[in-house]
Deep mutational scan, measured.
Amino acid sequence: MTEYKLVVVGAGGVGKSALTIQLIQNHFVDEYDPTIEDSYRKQVVIDGETCLLDILDTAGQEEYSAMRDQYMRTGEGFLCVFAINNTKSFEDIHHYREQIKRVKDSEDVPMVLVGNKCDLPSRTVDTKQAQDLARSYGIPFIETSAKTRQGVDDAFYTLVREIRKHKEKMSKDGKKKKKKSKTKCVIM
């Protein structure tokens, strides 16, 4: 069974824990209790493949930012979460993405942009803004509501699919490099 290491990042209060708990335990946590770091595991079937999701729910508070490099190193894919009623959390996505790329030393890291709290009427981040940002990053965008469960499975499952595509691409690139290195030079 394939294991996928997913990391949920975003500013404090955007609903990272609520999304994760909704996926794992099928219930909505409405009281806000700032996370330092929590880890969850769940076995699911995605596109006919049974897999184990190892999900790291991270601290959004700035005082825990020193811990970010460590979990970013171990993560295979990242859910970059903002709240649709919090423009600052949307603007912060850029910083999370840049930090992930720096730590992973790669421009090509599996990510999904997630606009959470889409059940709320007080939207300050337009869907088109988020779609445009995701398009500019070359990553999928999904709106979710941890409260109603809308888009929750889709967000995590899409990230797994992005990781699969990335692994497939990397193995193809690896095979191309191996083929090239088999060419021999004969000096007579």
Rank of each mutant, 00 (worst) to 15 (best):
T2L: 05
L6D: 00
G10M: 00
S17V: 00
A18D: 14
L19D: 04
T20E: 12
I21M: 14
Q22G: 11
L23D: 14
I24G: 15
F28V: 10
V29Q: 12
D30P: 11
D33W: 05
P34H: 05
P34K: 03
T35A: 08
I36K: 14
E37V: 12
S39A: 08
S39I: 06
S39L: 05
Y40P: 09
Q43S: 07
V45S: 11
I46F: 05
D47H: 04
D47E: 06
G48W: 01
C51Q: 04
L52N: 13
I55S: 10
E62N: 08
E63R: 05
E63A: 03
Y64A: 15
S65C: 10
M67Y: 06
D69I: 00
D69R: 03
M72T: 08
F78V: 11
L79S: 00
V81A: 04
F82G: 15
A83E: 15
A83K: 03
I84K: 09
I84P: 15
T87V: 09
T87I: 09
K88E: 10
K88T: 08
H94S: 07
H94C: 04
H95F: 01
Y96E: 01
R97D: 01
R97F: 15
E98V: 01
Q99T: 11
I100G: 01
I100A: 02
R102E: 08
V103K: 04
K104T: 08
D105P: 04
S106P: 04
E107K: 04
E107S: 10
V109F: 10
M111G: 01
M111V: 04
L113E: 00
L113V: 05
V114E: 00
N116E: 02
D119G: 05
D119F: 00
L120N: 03
P121C: 07
P121M: 12
S122Y: 09
R123L: 10
R123K: 11
D126Y: 08
T127Q: 11
D132H: 06
L133H: 02
L133N: 01
Y137A: 09
I139S: 05
I142A: 01
I142V: 11
E143G: 02
E143A: 04
R149N: 09
V152M: 12
A155T: 02
A155H: 00
A155G: 03
F156C: 04
F156M: 12
Y157R: 12
Y157W: 11
V160T: 04
E162K: 03
R164L: 06
H166P: 02
K167V: 03
K167T: 03
E168C: 14
M170F: 07
S171M: 14
K172T: 06
D173P: 09
K176W: 09
K176H: 13
K177Y: 11
K180F: 03
S181C: 07
T183H: 12
C185G: 15
V186N: 15
I187E: 15
I187F: 13
M188D: 15
